[in-house]
Simulated scan of single mutants.
Amino acid sequence: MSTYLEQAKTVAGFVETLSREHPKAAEGFLTLHKSSAGDSALTGRQKELIALGISIAIRCEGCISCHVKAALKAGATQEEIVETIGVSILMGGGPSVVYGEKAYQAMKEMM
């Protein structure tokens, strides 16, 4: 397995590939992403923590890598990420324990 940071870069790289190969799909995804990110009623940090929680619950490793990276960049603390993992376990049950560990390892790698 590659590192979580490499995995996040791979996802970003594929979005670039998709931009060339299927520009409308990439444009739609990037427009949605940009319109949902950033500060408004919720801060960008809060939104990234929510996205991380959902990533764990739906068991998406690439999403975990990207949202741990973005949460840290947005100023999330270890305590906030660990608490997000806890909420994800509440909502996702046993499989979220497994993917919560992946989010924890990604956070430790990227800090």
Score class of each variant (00 low, 15 high):
E48H: 07
L18D: 04
E16R: 09
L72R: 05
A57S: 11
A76L: 01
D39F: 08
E16V: 11
T10A: 15
P95H: 08
P23I: 01
L90H: 12
T17L: 14
Y4N: 08
E6C: 06
I64S: 02
S36M: 15
E27G: 07
L32D: 11
T17K: 15
A8F: 01
S19T: 12
Y99V: 03
K108E: 14
G38L: 02
G28N: 07
S65Y: 05
A103P: 01
Q105V: 10
A26C: 05
A71P: 07
Q46L: 09
L42I: 07
G75E: 03
S88T: 02
G53D: 03
Q7W: 07
L90C: 08
E79W: 09
H33A: 15
F29I: 07
T3V: 04
S36C: 09
A26R: 10
A103F: 01
L18G: 01
R59I: 01
G44L: 03
G94L: 12
A57I: 06
A106G: 01
Q7H: 13
V97G: 11
M107A: 00
K24R: 13
L90A: 14
T43N: 06
A76F: 02
I50R: 02
K108M: 15
L18M: 13
M110N: 04
I81V: 11
G94M: 13
G44A: 08
L5Q: 11
S55F: 04
G28H: 08
G94V: 09
G44N: 10
L30F: 10
H67K: 02
S96Q: 01
T77W: 08
P23W: 10
E6K: 08
S19K: 11
L18H: 03
A70Y: 03
T17Y: 14
L42P: 12
L18C: 04
K24F: 08
T10G: 12
L90M: 15
F14K: 14
F29K: 06
E21W: 06
V87N: 08
E21A: 15
V97L: 15
K73M: 09
T84H: 03
E48L: 01
I64F: 02
M110H: 02
G92R: 00
G38F: 03
Y99G: 00
C63V: 04
I54P: 03
T10Y: 10
A41K: 12
I56T: 00
G44M: 05
I64A: 00
V68I: 09
